[in-house]
């Protein structure tokens, strides 16, 4: 149960960060995470999303995936249409990811590059590679040795938002830093 409570809290943190750092219109109509009180039986033992998330978030085990996400603010950075420029918001997140990676030198990550659906399949594979490489190169420039960094492009094959509108497109144009080994 504590694990689940922590997970709920982490999602709350991510949503909170998104609200601060991005325009409101690109916020996802996020479905409630498992365990969010909706009158279900788990409500008595979980922390309601959005309340007191900071203190619960500190429960994340240092060096864990949850800790990585909490410390960095997000595992995901977003891009403009057909762009692979790392903007200031993305730089801030990647900078914190790099700091965290410096603290845990045994961790190896894969940076996934993704696109929205407004490009042809093969072009988007190449564009996803550009985004993953841009994020990887930024991490490397912050001192993360490249042998710890891999990239993979999924093009438009793995959206996180399934709509065909600007809000969904914005969420899908992303690079996600995924821990592959070394986390606690």
């Amino acid at each position: 149960m504590p694990k689940r409570a922590a997970a709920v809290a982490m999602i709350a943190i991510l949503v909170g960060v998104g609200a601060c750092s991005t325009k409101k219109k690109i916020l996802p109509p996020a479905p409630p995470p498992i365990g969010t009180p909706l009158g279900g039986g788990t409500s008595s033992t979980t922390t309601p999303a959005g309340s007191d998330s900071g203190t619960v978030g500190t429960r994340a085990v240092p060096g864990s995936l949850a800790d990585f996400r909490a410390t960095s603010g997000s595992d995901t950075v977003l891009f403009a249409y057909d762009s692979y420029d790392v903007d200031d918001t993305a730089k801030a997140i990647l900078g914190k990811q790099a700091e965290w990676l410096a603290r845990y030198p045994g961790v190896r990550v894969t940076v996934e590059g993704h696109t929205d659906e407004r490009g042809t399949r093969e072009y988007n594979l190449a564009l996803g590679d550009r985004r993953a490489s841009a994020a990887k190169n930024f991490l490397a420039a912050q001192g993360v040795i490249t042998s710890r960094l891999q990239t993979i492009s999924y093009g438009k094959e793995r959206p996180v938002a399934d709509g065909s509108d600007d809000a969904a497109y914005a969420q899908n144009r992303r690079a996600v830093t995924v821990i592959v080994s070394g986390a606690r």
């Binding site: 692979y84 093969e122 190449a126 590679d129 190169n137 492009s153």
Partner: peptide, 9 residues
């Protein structure tokens, strides 16, 4: 075919 390397294809 194509090969992508560090953002160029």
């Amino acid at each position: 075919y194509s090969i992508s390397q560090n953002g160029t294809t």
